[in-house]
Design a protein around this nucleic acid. Structure first.
Length: 673
DNA sequence: CTAGGGTTAG
């Protein structure tokens, strides 16, 4: 009964379009409502359609096809569903040969070609249509947009004598899809001025445009409109709104929007979770993930991507493995996007072997996946493997993009492969024609300066076509410390502080350089500047995951419940290490203290506390995985070598820039970091 | 015509 009602509606619509066919149509209604004949035939017909037998289906309903749009729609749907272009073309030619190609049917065909990504045929059809209407133009705008031809879309748009809201939506969303966010928003206000009322589609696109521009101001205006309009409770609008706030750095506002939604679907949860993941709140990602599951929602591949990438930020291997297992159970692991995240997560959690395993099992020819594997090798100081992988990427015919190169350069710089790195940089600019971004220059500066070519690195910064930021100068400054070059350091520090006068880390670095060069007066001058500006050193924090529980330590921190035991253990350990020849390296200690104080200050660096705690709480032979927010200092690096030997343990430390694998008194970085 | 996600310098 329901079906017949719909069919009648179609007849009415059709009659208004083609007055001439009204009689025939009426006749059809009367036959098709009789119980026996038509309904079984319709079933046969749809069966034929779903099997893809267009010709047979067409024959079985030859006379009625042209009078009942729903039948024609079935045929078109069949073509789209089976993504069968030949079938669609057949249908198209049948329409022509039977002389029935009219306004209504050609719009359906147009939309079919557009959906089957056959834009060329759609264009030809459109160009030869004597009866273009708003609908056909709208379809065409979308067709051009999805093939990336925004100019042609705009042409159709501009030349339309009349438009409706869908027209504006198609053009606005097209512009915004291709990140012409500003243009999209301008078009939106034009539409608004002309009196077209935005609907939920418009609002979704426009909010996405605001998010792309990180424009809170525009976003808030749209928000105000949403509250007035009837789309306050629309799921799509709500998620877009929250997304806009979070992208623009207003995490709280975004959360408020999500909280106010009467129903939350997976996408709404994902918006919240991804927002937190991307703005550096990985703990909250895990919390929300658990709440979401408790609320009875099923995480999908996008949830898993955010959660697993948060596990890499936190370096919580246990949590990462567990989420990986959940993703497998949910059947989401065959997706390449997730594979890239997994490769990165295992690498950043210190398990390079597992990254390799995930990578090899996937075997997708996806440049992002390969980039993440190259980066993973680089992170672990395996420059040779990174280069080999890149070369294989070229052999397999994959187009290396700027990120692939970034990962590669990064690997070279961390492994001291100066020549190779410079060679790849030339390759990128020359043969690949890629324009280096600031990040690429940063890698090259890192490569040169770590290697000891401080002047060359400085010249590179001064000559590059992009304005240097504080980060790039700081890379050089850090290298000045390693190579104990106070002259370059003073010059460079000046540049850093020009760009970012509040950067405490630079003062600390500068003071360290002076200290290593034993320029004590300069040291106290820098420290006075810090005091005057009320700047404090960013505290070093280390953490370790034991039995799925994360324990965090910072220097001199006595807040851990086992703090006393840790101290005792650490003292014993230090004595044992000194017996084996360990001598604390106090050169990097900032304060004017006596030797004993300096040693004591070093002995309680956060990574040492974390290692001591981990040694006390894990059985012998289990590798330790320690994470640190800053770079490992020279003394800790030396001390951990001794610890690995004394306790016969493999200790894996992730600092702010890379991994160190300590084993039998040595480190995988070869003291180059 | 409509929302959310992956790799990347320190």
């Amino acid at each position: 009964m329901k079906c017949m009602g719909k069919s009648c509606l179609n007849h009415v619509r059709l009659c208004s379009l083609f007055n001439t066919q009204c009689i025939k149509t009426r006749h059809f209604i009367s036959t098709s409502t009789s119980k026996t004949g038509a309904s079984t035939s319709i079933e046969e017909f749809t069966a034929l359609c779903s099997k893809g037998h267009v010709k047979e289906a067409f024959k079985s309903f030859r006379s009625e096809i042209w009078s009942d749009t729903s039948l024609f729609c079935h045929l078109v749907q069949a073509c789209i569903l089976r993504k069968s272009l030949p079938m669609g073309k057949q249908l198209h030619s049948l329409t022509i040969t039977s002389g029935c190609l009219n306004k209504f049917f050609s719009n359906h065909l147009l939309s079919m070609y557009s959906k089957l990504r056959e834009s060329q045929t759609a264009i030809t059809l459109f160009d030869h249509m004597p009866w273009r209407n708003i609908m056909s133009c709208n379809i065409m705008i979308n067709c051009y947009v999805q093939s990336g031809d925004l100019d042609s879309a705009r042409n159709v748009f501009d030349e339309m004598p009349q438009r409706n809201v869908a027209t504006w939506n198609a053009m606005v969303s097209g512009l915004i899809q291709f990140e012409f966010n500003g243009d999209g928003l301008c078009l939106f206000s034009e539409m608004h001025e002309l009196g077209f009322l935005p609907d939920e589609y418009t609002l979704g696109s426009v909010l996405r445009g605001c998010a792309g521009l990180r424009s809170l101001r525009a976003g808030k205006q749209v928000h105000a409109y949403v509250m007035k309009s009837g789309f306050k409770f629309d799921l799509v609008v709500g998620s877009s709104l929250a997304h806009m706030y979070m992208k623009s750095g207003s995490l709280e506002e975004g959360e408020k929007v999500i909280d106010s939604m009467p129903i939350r679907n997976v996408v709404a949860w994902n918006t919240l979770i991804a927002g937190k993941a991307q703005s550096g709140h990985p703990e909250e990602v895990l919390d929300n993930y658990n709440i979401m599951k408790l609320a009875g929602l099923r995480p999908d591949k996008i949830t898993f991507v955010s959660v697993i990438s948060s596990c890499s930020d936190l370096a919580t291997l246990g949590q990462g493995q567990q989420t990986h297992a959940e993703a497998i159970k949910a059947g989401a692991c065959s997706v390449v996007d997730l594979t890239s995240t997994l490769v990165s997560m295992y690498s950043r959690c210190g398990c390079l072997e597992d990254s390799v395993k995930v990578f090899v099992e996937s075997e997708s020819m996806d440049p992002v996946l390969w980039s993440s594997m190259i980066a993973a090798y680089g992170f672990h100081g395996r420059g040779e493997e990174a280069i080999k992988l890149f070369e294989r990427m070229e052999e397999e015919g994959m187009e290396a993009d700027d990120v692939a190169f970034l990962s590669l350069l990064y690997a070279c710089s961390h492994c001291g492969l100066r020549e190779k790195g410079l060679e790849f940089f030339d390759l990128m600019v020359g043969r690949y024609g890629l324009k280096p971004r600031r990040e690429h220059y940063a890698c090259i500066v890192d490569l040169l300066s770590r290697y000891g070519c401080l002047e060359e690195a400085e010249a590179m910064i001064r000559s590059m076509p992009i304005k240097a930021d504080a980060i790039i100068w700081k890379i050089l400054l850090a290298a000045c410390k390693i190579h104990k070059n106070a002259d370059v350091a003073s010059r460079v520090a000046e540049e850093v502080l020009k760009v970012d006068p509040q950067d405490s880390a630079s003062y600390v670095l500068l003071s360290n350089v002076h200290a290593s060069a034993k320029r004590w007066e300069d040291v106290s001058a820098v420290r006075k500047m810090m005091r005057d500006k009320n700047l404090k050193k960013e505290p070093g924090v280390s953490w370790v995951e034991i039995k799925n529980q994360v324990h965090q330590f910072s220097r001199g921190d006595r807040s851990h419940p086992k703090s006393k035991e840790i101290d005792l253990y650490l003292n014993e350990l230090t004595t044992e290490m000194k017996f084996r020849g360990y001598a604390p390296n106090t050169s990097a200690v900032l304060h004017d203290m006596d030797v004993e104080e300096k040693e004591d200050s070093l002995a309680h660096h956060s990574e040492k506390l974390a290692i001591a705690f981990a040694l006390m709480n894990t059985p012998g032979g289990v590798p330790l995985r320690i994470m640190k927010n800053l770079r490992v200092c020279e003394d800790c690096h030396l001390a951990i070598k001794y610890i690995s030997e004394t306790k016969n343990r493999e200790i894996i430390v992730r600092d702010s820039s890379r991994f160190h694998h300590f084993r039998n008194g040595g480190c995988s970085c070869g003291d180059y970091w």
